[in-house]
Design a protein around this nucleic acid. Structure first.
Lengths: 235, 235
DNA sequence: CGGAATGTTGATATGCCTCAACTAAAGTGG
DNA sequence: CCACTTTAGTTGAGGCATATCAACATTCCG
């Protein structure tokens, strides 16, 4: 968490002490398990320790819309710290370990160390920037461009967090989930992935995302990483 | 601003005093004028006093993607309080009056009154919820449903802020802008609006949105207002 | 009064969806 | 260990919603 916050914020010694003083409960969850459901009134906050998590909406029709994906170090429910009721759900992808901290402990820490609060606040604002980018991605781009953009974002964030090895990282997302994230049918998803694979841009197989040509892939997806607001970009 | 914050947060006497102590600069802008551009490094924060504002992305191709709309009382750039550089732009719709407050004054107030900070933070989280809803809206719904949903959201928020008269409110958005918000061509927008009009659900004409049948309109757009997190829903 | 911006409508093209069949891989029980 | 089921991925054919292009009507505004 500290590493993650330092990616975008400056924290002094007392801030770090305050953070180390929080005492989280750690839990391991199986692939697909929900951390929080739509409508819940959570009193704890979640951090991903290992694995991935994702936010999603459930529509009246039962359709699922994935909203964002979260890597180790992310707080996938930071968005509900100051909001009574969940307007979306959060689940894990693959076997995932999470840490839980009570809201009241966090808020007490915020009051003592405003700088810590501002760092988490900034984190929630970057999440919002990612949402905005998703609006643009899913509204105006072709299937292939959408997928390329998502791959770029995931790989870029993974790399910034030191979760990549060479040009690969663990992204245990199925094609169905990819479709539910990008607002495309599974048939289209498959063909778009085949296209990206055939052009030697990238590949997603058995939960591993591999980038073959970053430059062409990011061009294909119109990916410009400013919106991630990282202090030290990995590229 | 106080009225607006009270829609979702509780503030005590000292918080209110702190807010009244801020001294904003007021400016009036003409239709379409930019408040902030993508790439700017703002050191002031903006509030809409009268009229409307909108966030948008500019893509390399020149295409514009509107991300959200903001009514009187909203802070359309709350999202960049703790972020160095704007990843999106903000413009006004129609003739609009805004108030500017320096970031450093706001942050000083946050440190003195954490509760005020939490209220603004909550405001930014509700903005994020609106972004999430836009992802879902633009990804999975038909043209008519998207438009119905947007009309519902705008009217609902306007009503919560006391900006409606009977079943009408001022929404000075052109069809082109509607298309750039919903990710649809202008031809489709026009036909979708005609459909909504012909079914007597709502109408948007000369910058005035009129709701004719709230129940059927909200059904058509799958509109469920929980994500707006209002303490006292207007319906 | 003229020009620009905005809104309207029709014809055609196309990207994506739906449906359906099939293959491959992963988990399950005998 | 193998048959059996389930889940994930692949591919083709046809239809439909929306894009694109084009012409025209209307309103706004100097």
């Amino acid at each position: 968490m500290i590493r993650k916050l330092k990616e975008h914020s400056r924290l002094d010694h007392d801030d770090l002490a305050e953070i180390r003083h929080l005492n989280p409960v750690v839990r391991e969850l199986q692939n697909g398990a929900d951390i929080i459901r739509q409508g819940d009134r959570p009193h704890v906050s979640v951090m991903v320790v290992e694995g991935m998590a994702a936010r999603y909406h459930i529509l009246p029709s039962g359709r699922r819309q994935y909203l964002s994906f979260h890597l180790a170090g992310d707080m996938p429910d930071s968005q509900c710290l100051f909001v009574d009721q969940m307007d979306h759900a959060v689940c894990v992808l693959g076997k995932t370990t999470i840490a839980l901290v009570a809201h009241k402990d966090l808020i007490a820490a915020f009051v003592r160390r405003p700088n810590f609060a501002f760092a988490i606040w900034r984190e929630t604002l970057i999440d919002a920037a990612i949402f905005r980018e998703a609006i643009t991605n899913n509204s105006g781009r072709s299937a292939v461009a959408r997928m390329a953009h998502l791959f770029c974002e995931l790989f870029y964030r993974a790399r910034a967090s030191g979760l990549t090895r060479d040009y690969s990282c663990q992204i245990p997302i199925s094609l169905v989930q990819l479709g539910e994230a990008l607002g495309l049918s599974i048939a289209t998803i498959n063909r778009a992935l085949a296209d990206i694979r055939d052009h030697d841009l990238a590949d997603l197989k058995n939960g591993v995302l591999t980038i073959n040509d970053w430059s062409r892939l990011s061009k294909r997806g119109e990916f410009t990483p400013q919106y991630l607001h990282l202090r030290r970009p990995p590229f």
